[in-house]
């Protein structure tokens, strides 16, 4: 091996000699310019004004963070103080009741879980597929692809009540006619968060370096094989984080569920896609609008349950992100 390399190096002797000579000359020039003496004692110190400015800037940033944290803390303390008394296993196991001491959130919790499952089942494949099309296949020069892009952005900002009306017109009644069912509710929430999932998934796909796509395709993989086996797995942390955050937005939605006709007083768990349902935000809303003070305390308890579910969902997102986090 080294033999053949030596043989191959021979023709380059003359040119490499000249190159190294020019390189040496360049090095000498650089060294000369660096040789300007630097007097360390005379390096200027930071002025007092700079130090003060720096300190003010840092302080105002901390203050901004503090405002949001304090508001959140007050809210949490207030809710926990009011609702902690309502929390018990009975509260979790009981169904709604006209008597505050016997009322519970089981049907609301189960309804919310059903909604989340249906929503996720619909929105994750649809949203990821839409993102793959827009990010990997769509030709930006075509007007309809640009129109889709702009509209997806817009849809993410449409008020949720509008999705409720859409769900009522198309899913509850109209062409699909699912009735006031948990299926219609879940799909309505799915439509609501679909743009969020599409946008998050696109960003996750865009963050996968194109060298991964090229590397896969240079091995003779088709475009789809490159996306399915390399790009998509690399994007999973971003996609799942986006999807779970979208779900946690859906979990707190009330307005669209009112539109699609979720009941507020349901004394049974959903037992199928066509079942009537209620959800935690609706239960909270209904208890809050009741005149009796005891029900308001129950609402605070239900809020704690809802926030615990949110926290659980968001921690799943964090765990997934940490587990699959990649560096290139």
């Amino acid at each position: 091996m080294s033999d053949s390399r030596r043989r191959l190096r021979r023709p380059s002797h003359r040119p490499s000699d000249r190159v190294s000579r020019t390189a040496a000359a360049a090095g000498a020039a650089v060294g000369g310019s660096l040789a300007v003496p630097v007097d360390a004692d005379h390096l200027p110190r930071a002025t007092r004004r700079d130090v003060v400015r720096e300190r003010y800037f840092k302080f105002s940033l901390i203050a901004c963070v503090a405002v949001s944290l304090i508001v959140l803390a007050i809210l949490l303390i207030d809710i926990v103080r009011q609702g902690a008394g309502a929390l018990s296993m009975d509260f979790l196991n009981n169904f709604p009741s006209a008597f505050p001491e016997r009322a519970g959130v089981q049907s609301a919790v189960m309804g919310t879980l059903w909604l989340m499952a249906i929503c996720a089942f619909f929105v994750v494949p649809t949203g990821v597929a839409a993102a793959i099309y827009l990010e990997e296949y769509a030709d930006r020069k075509r007007w309809f692809n640009r129109a889709i892009e702009v509209n997806v952005q817009n849809l993410a900002a449409v008020p949720s009540i509008v999705y409720g009306i859409l769900g009522l017109a198309f899913l509850v009644r109209g062409p699909f006619g699912f009735g006031r069912s948990v299926l219609a509710g879940g799909l309505t929430l799915g439509l609501l968060v679909l743009p969020v999932v599409v946008i998050a998934s696109r960003e996750a796909l865009r963050a996968v370096p194109s060298s991964i796509r090229e590397g896969a395709m240079a091995l003779g993989a088709t475009k789809w094989q490159a996306i399915w086996h390399q790009v998509l797995p690399s994007a999973i942390p971003g996609i799942s984080t986006g999807a779970i955050l979208a779900l946690s937005r859906a979990i707190g939605e009330t307005a669209p569920l009112i539109m699609v006709g979720a009941a507020t007083y349901v004394a049974f768990n959903p037992d199928g896609l066509n079942s009537a349902f209620t959800a935690l935000p609706l239960q909270i809303y209904s208890w809050l609008s009741s005149p009796q003070e005891e029900f308001k305390l129950l609402a605070a308890g239900a809020i704690i349950v809802l926030m615990a579910m949110l926290l659980a969902i968001n921690s799943i997102a964090i765990v997934i992100r940490n587990r699959y986090e990649r560096k290139w």
């Binding site: 060298s211 991964i212 090229e214 590397g215 896969a216 240079a218 091995l219 003779g220 290139w328």
Partner: peptide, 14 residues
């Protein structure tokens, strides 16, 4: 499939 390629920057799959 018949003409492989190696790129400027190493690009192993993650």
């Amino acid at each position: 499939k018949r003409i492989g390629m190696v790129f400027q920057k190493p690009n192993p799959f993650p």
